[in-house]
């Protein structure tokens, strides 16, 4: 029982954190899928990596929930691309997820005695 619970927590955590990453990245400007995957990899200095098989389902799910919105945008001389931007509902979620994450990280840090850098 305990084991199952911890597995669930693990999964929720990961899912929650991935959502937080995406929402944060589209907060300032609309971005397309490849851009998002590169940004996550670059900003985490290679620690976090999204595969196609994980990234796009996540994008569609967020879109379906109404947190982000995808639109096909055509730029001169380029193929059209699907850009995702944050919706007002997404902003609320992002705010709340950031708080949760901060509290969670601080709690972990306090317990584990890890110094924040």
């Amino acid at each position: 029982m305990q084991h199952i619970k911890s597995q669930m927590l693990d999964r929720e955590l990961k899912e929650g954190s991935a959502e937080l990453l995406i929402l944060s990245l589209v907060e300032d400007q609309p971005r397309h899928g490849y851009d998002l995957s590169k940004l996550i990899e670059a900003r985490s200095e290679g620690v976090l990596k999204f595969r196609v098989a994980s990234l796009y389902p996540l994008l569609y799910r967020l879109e379906k929930r109404g947190w982000i919105q995808g639109r096909w945008i055509e730029k001169a001389g380029q193929r059209r691309r699907r850009y995702y931007r944050l919706t007002p509902a997404g902003e609320q979620v992002l705010k709340s997820q950031r708080n949760t994450w901060r509290e969670f990280a601080e709690a972990i840090n306090r317990v584990a005695g890890v110094e924040s850098t």
Partner: peptide, 25 residues
């Protein structure tokens, strides 16, 4: 294994089960 993933630089996979995609789509 999660441990191996953490040490090996594997990414936390946002959607751990591909079936989720089916559900999502």
């Amino acid at each position: 294994s999660p441990a191996a993933r953490a040490s090996g630089g594997g990414a936390p996979r946002a959607v751990s089960n591909d079936a989720d995609l089916v559900r999502e789509l």
